[in-house]
Design a protein around this nucleic acid. Structure first.
Length: 706
RNA sequence: GGGCGGUUAGCUCAGUUGGUAGAGCAUUGUCUUGACGUGACAAGGGUCAGAGGUUCGAAUCCUCUACCGCCCACCA
């Protein structure tokens, strides 16, 4: 056989990859509707939608690669394989990113340009980014069905979100309530419990009495909030304070008039500080809980701008929280209520907002919530919490690695009602309209004038939670939805268990009445040579496209996969990339050798060939690994066999003996090895296949060897 | 305060149900052999964190300890 010119030179990814991806796209086989008839049984994965804010980072690359491996494997096995792409509008992330850009470039805030102009601006930004993102995902070799591409904020998904809201509202699972929320003064919005990042800081713990006459000393790190106190709580068994429980005191503290009741509550730790807790119901979740139990009044003394309200009293009203802190401290010194020994440094976890870094200020606010503890008659009187537990306990969802199931259950046990309304502008507007005292909830705006829609938008995870079925056409009963839902595998990073995996289970269990997926494969974080976290926010950015340019996409894929089991963090090093780049070239030369020595006329008996016997073993072994999601092992095994058995032993042997039967066996085995390798190194294997077969068939849909 | 993960060759990591340790890279030596020097052959290198236990036998199971890392939690 004549050897093409290109095989005489080293393998060139840059001259190959674009052309091969086009070949695949033109074949139409990314779309399961176009697959040959043997592809019957469905297999589906939805791509975790990358944020439309930016470029593909290394975490997005590993996600893409793992899923592409699964999908290519299943497609070759004959499944009607759908891998559905999309992007996430990532409401809060995008909103704050555009705000940052505007602040930096024009020193303007979103309030300066108004809602409409701001949203238009964000949409423009998103449109520019989405195209780039698609290109980058394709560069990884992703065999995604682009004809079904979705966006969490497109019209169809919008209908899905409004429908979900309406159905949950009608079922009493969504309610509007005045409760303590996590307020981010910097981002000017509420955030959910999961969007809080705790930072350890040293804080000063002050111990003092409200006034000379008050019998009990309290401890606090935030004296300025004490103007909002309505009680002092002690442990019921605390002998020191038993005589005071039930008594009430009127006093003046830092210019504010307080009415303090002494209450006994189990939540108080008698060992901490003085064992007495000044209860500030408006600005602490635990205090709010105590206040509810003891029917205490709530006084809001801090506003949305982290300034003291008028209720804080004339001394500090209008002051910023930090300044008020100093003023109250000064007041305490001046009144002789504080001595140097009353101030201690303690370690404290301070709550900050994930996106803006702003210090969270708990505030009472009228917001929308998802009730996770309400029983649902149409779902067997279970609560959302229980439905989420059932999905894993009896619904058959398996986590990989299994240990994350405990993490999941632990999260559910601690779950409170989910605050879903946000005061940012970019996102799904809450489908609620008001007219006077009337309230209307609907998929579309109510008929007639005078209705005003709720200003708030929904938590971005509300729409992400619908992703497995909103992408398939829900709420319509589409053929796609019937065929591909529940999806087979959900593959994502373990850091998204709470944000996303749990929310998808919640939404699917209630809205569709089934689990959203059967297996959850969780990948770890990719770190650099030094073991540091590679992330956009921390700098030290590693661009997967740059790596693919330098080493070839196939080498990058192998480097990301080999030796990296689910759930474990990994390191990406140049040594590893080099090793697999070399492997690609080795494979290239094997192809040349096999083609040069093709002995198509020779007869050979496979049962007599040791190579073929060993090949059978490796096929069985690798197939078992693939079925059990051990891609890191499968890849390594094929690599080792191809190089160190097939090439080092069998090619050398054939060279020495010149036996035509041996060359024939080589040819046969090499074709199977290309198939085994294809999910991992799709570009070079397809390129070799095309060269050997003269473009007659396409490796992507060849049958997986058995 | 709970929970989880890690600790195996210089480096990065495998080791699926327990049977006297493996890979890649790195190091050293040999090979200017027409598939490939991005190669081949070969060599060196580990008391599998420590202690105890179960077992005929443990890197692998159990207990404890140490260090590193992560997650969760309403100690104000």
């Amino acid at each position: 056989m004549e050897i093409p010119e290109k095989l005489l030179k080293p393998y060139s990814p840059s001259k190959t990859e674009g052309r091969i991806y086009e070949l695949w796209e033109e074949s139409g086989y990314f779309n399961p509707d176009n697959l040959p008839a043997r592809h019957n049984e469905p297999f589906s994965i939805v791509l975790p939608p990358p944020n439309a804010t930016g470029t593909l980072h290394i975490g997005g690359a590993i996600m893409t690669v793992i899923e592409d491996i699964m999908v290519r494997y299943k497609r070759m096995q004959g499944f009607k394989t759908l891998w559905l792409p999309g992007t996430d509008h990532a409401a809060i992330a995008t909103n704050s990113k555009v705000e940052k850009i505007m602040q930096k470039e024009e020193s303007k805030s979103r309030h300066d340009i108004g809602r409409e102009a701001f949203v238009a601006r964000v949409e423009k930004f998103v449109e520019e980014n989405r195209g780039a993102l698609k290109h980058q995902i394709s560069r990884m070799g992703a065999s995604l069905d682009w004809s079904r591409e979705a966006f969490t904020f497109d019209e169809k998904r919008n209908v899905g979100v409004r429908t979900a809201f309406k159905r949950m509202y009608d079922a009493g699972l969504i309610y509007r309530g005045n409760r303590i929320v996590n307020w981010d003064p910097k981002g000017q919005t509420t955030i959910s419990d999961d969007e809080i990042v705790y930072e350890e800081r040293t804080a000063r713990l002050y111990t003092f009495k409200y006034s000379k006459d008050f019998p009990i000393a309290i401890s606090t790190t935030r004296p300025e909030t004490k103007v909002g106190d309505t009680a002092v709580a002690v442990h019921p068994d605390d002998e020191r304070y038993k005589q005071y429980v039930g008594k009430e005191y009127d006093l003046e503290f830092a210019g504010a008039k307080l009415h303090i009741k002494i209450v006994a509550d189990e939540a108080v730790d008698p060992e901490f500080g003085t064992g007495a807790l000044g209860v500030t119901p408006a600005h602490s979740q635990i205090d709010a809980d105590i206040a509810t139990r003891h029917k205490l009044p709530t006084i809001q003394v801090i506003n949305e701008f982290a300034k003291m309200t008028d209720a804080a009293g004339p001394l500090i009203a209008g002051q910023k929280v930090l300044h008020a802190h100093e003023m109250v401290e000064d007041w305490l010194w001046g009144k002789g209520l504080l001595q140097p020994e009353d101030i201690k440094d303690i370690k404290q976890n301070i709550a900050t907002a994930e996106r803006t870094g702003g210090v969270i200020e708990p505030l009472p606010k009228l917001q929308w919530f998802v009730n996770v503890n309400k029983t649902i008659p149409e779902r067997g009187d279970k609560t959302l919490k229980e439905l989420m537990q059932d999905a894993v306990k009896v619904g058959g969802i398996k986590f990989l690695p299994e240990r994350f199931e405990n993490v999941y259950f632990n999260w559910i046990n601690n779950l409170r009602d989910w605050c879903i309304s946000r005061q940012i502008w970019y996102g799904h507007r809450i489908p609620v309209w008001y007219k006077g005292d009337e309230l209307y909830v609907g998929v579309e705006a109510p008929e007639g004038g005078d209705w005003t829609q709720d200003d708030d938008t929904l938590d971005t995870w509300f729409s992400s939670g619908l992703w497995t079925f909103s992408t398939l056409g829900w709420p319509e009963e589409t053929p796609d939805l019937k065929l591909y839902h529940p999806t087979d595998v959900l593959e994502t990073g373990y850091d998204l268990i709470f944000f996303w995996v749990a929310r998808m289970i919640l939404m699917s269990q209630f809205l569709v009445g089934e689990v959203p997926f059967k297996t959850v494969y969780l990948h770890g974080l990719v770190r650099n040579d030094k073991g540091e976290k590679i992330s956009k926010s921390l700098g030290g950015n590693v661009d997967p496209i740059e790596i693919a340019d330098t080493w070839g996409t196939d080498a990058l894929r192998m480097a990301l996969i080999v030796g990296v089991g689910p759930g474990s963090d990994s390191k990406l090093s140049n040594e590893k990339l080099k090793a697999y780049k070399n492997f690609a070239n080795k494979l290239w030369n094997m192809a040349r050798f096999v083609m040069e020595h093709e002995a198509s006329n020779a007869k050979f008996k496979t049962q007599n060939s040791k190579l073929i016997q060993e090949l059978d073993e490796i096929v069985k072994d690798v197939t078992l690994d693939m079925d059990n999601y051990r891609f890191y092992l499968a890849a390594e095994k094929i690599y080792a066999f191809t190089w160190h058995e097939f090439a080092d032993i069998y090619i050398e042997e054939a060279k020495k003996t010149g036996d035509p039967e041996k060359f024939c066996a080589l040819h046969f085995a090499f074709c199977d090895l290309l198939k085994l390798l294809h999910p991992f190194m799709p570009f070079i294997t397809e390129e070799i296949w095309q060269t050997m077969r003269g473009g007659k068939t396409i490796l992507m849909i060849e049958e997986w060897p058995v």
